[in-house]
């Protein structure tokens, strides 16, 4: 039945279903688990989640399409989500977004051809006192300057290289929450 989710992910979703008075509550946790493993909410991932959750696929799709953090399209290994809401905007968020776009040669919303980076403009991340801010794979990077962004890009490339060396043929795993702090 299950096609893309690992046994561990399925077990984790089953465990979540037991944690709530109504198992349907486990749908958001289940999608977080699935996306962490697959990298995005692909049609296969959605079908797997629906099967484990014992829900129609359309119920799962409806939830995926509502929440910004569930990716409906394939994303890179590093998803750079730069806040563009008003406190960050008046402290230069657009310059940061422009700088990243230049460095990666993509537009906001795009992914580099090697599948390494995705650049997204997002709404307020609740770190306005350290504007401009972004999240990369659910970690915060704050008080951004173009120089700091360059350092981070270097670091992510080096980290990806290191991981590639460790598992030669395996595709680069999604690095949710695992980017080392600078």
């Amino acid at each position: 039945m299950t096609r893309v989710l690992s046994d561990e992910a399925v077990a984790a979703i089953q465990a979540e279903r037991g944690r709530y008075p109504d198992p349907r509550s486990a749908l958001l946790p289940a999608l977080h688990i699935a996306q962490n493993e697959v990298g995005w909410c692909s049609a296969d991932a959605i079908e797997d989640v629906a099967a484990v959750m014992e829900l129609p696929t359309s119920d799962v799709e409806e939830v995926v399409s509502f929440y910004t953090m569930f990716y409906e399209d394939r994303v890179g290994s590093y998803v750079m989500e730069v806040c563009k809401t008003v406190p960050c905007a008046i402290l230069g968020a657009d310059q940061i977004i422009g700088h990243i776009a230049d460095r990666l040669g993509i537009s906001p919303g795009g992914t580099t051809p090697d599948g390494m980076f995705t650049l997204l403009r997002v709404e307020c991340l609740a770190a306005c006192h350290r504007a401009p801010v972004m999240q990369v794979n659910s970690r915060y990077y704050e008080n951004l300057t173009p120089e700091r962004v360059d350092q981070l890009l270097d670091l992510m490339r080096r980290q990806a290289e290191l991981r590639r060396g460790q598992a030669r043929e395996a595709p680069l795993p999604p690095l949710i929450g695992r980017v080392e702090a600078v």
Partner: peptide
């Protein structure tokens, strides 16, 4: 229990 939303 801590429940995590998904951006909304």
């Amino acid at each position: 229990s801590v429940y995590r939303g998904a951006g909304a």
